[in-house]
């Protein structure tokens, strides 16, 4: 219950930051960081996968409603959480995490390189789906890829920053 409440508070704070602060800052055409993805990265590996899918959808819809993107965040969050479930089952190794007394993938449990690949892959998937639905045309494919890469880097750096702030 405490875990759920903690995640709820983090979700609220990240959602608020994303909707009312980061979206409002003009960072140019290519850079659109979305640090709210930290919520799904720090979600325990053994969290109910169906529940997480629904939470991702509702959370994405909330971001969409506040930023006027109507389903783009929701679709990309669902895609990312689906991929997270797959990556967790294949690579996260829940037993070793349990032995270390943790339930999530972090730099302190898996090391910086694994975390870089893990978070980087999830962020990239999210941003790829997001920009694909945002650009919505094949002629802008390379622009879409460039936006995805630049924004993924920005998001990853902000996530590292927030993670160091919330110590998790």
């Amino acid at each position: 219950m405490i875990e759920f409440l903690r995640i709820f508070i983090i979700a609220f704070v990240l959602g608020f930051l994303q909707s009312f602060i980061i979206t409002e800052i003009d960072m140019g055409v290519w850079l659109r960081p979305m640090p709210y993805l930290l919520l799904f990265i720090i979600t325990p590996v053994n969290f109910n996968r169906y529940g997480l899918l629904v939470i991702a959808f509702i959370f994405g819809m909330f971001i969409d409603l506040t930023s006027g993107t109507f389903g783009t965040h929701a679709a990309s969050c669902v895609a990312m959480v689906y991929a997270k479930n797959f990556i967790d089952m294949r690579y996260a190794d829940f037993d070793s995490l349990k032995l270390q007394g943790e339930t999530y993938v972090g730099t302190e449990t898996k090391g910086l390189l694994f975390y870089f690949y893990y978070a980087g892959a999830l962020i990239f998937i999210h941003h790829f789906v997001f920009f694909m639905l945002d650009y919505f045309e094949f002629v802008s494919f390379f622009r879409m890829i460039f936006s995805t890469i630049v924004s993924s880097i920005g998001t990853f750096l902000l996530i590292l920053l927030f993670k160091s702030i919330i110590k998790r």
Binding site: Y50, L53, V54, A56, F57, G60, M61, D64, T69, F70, G71, T72, A74, A75, V78, A79, V81, Y82, L133
Partner: peptide, 14 residues
């Protein structure tokens, strides 16, 4: 299927 359903609903909203 649930993931697909939610994704499809989101795309529909878009």
């Amino acid at each position: 299927l649930l993931a697909l359903l939610l994704f499809a609903f989101s795309v529909n909203q878009i």
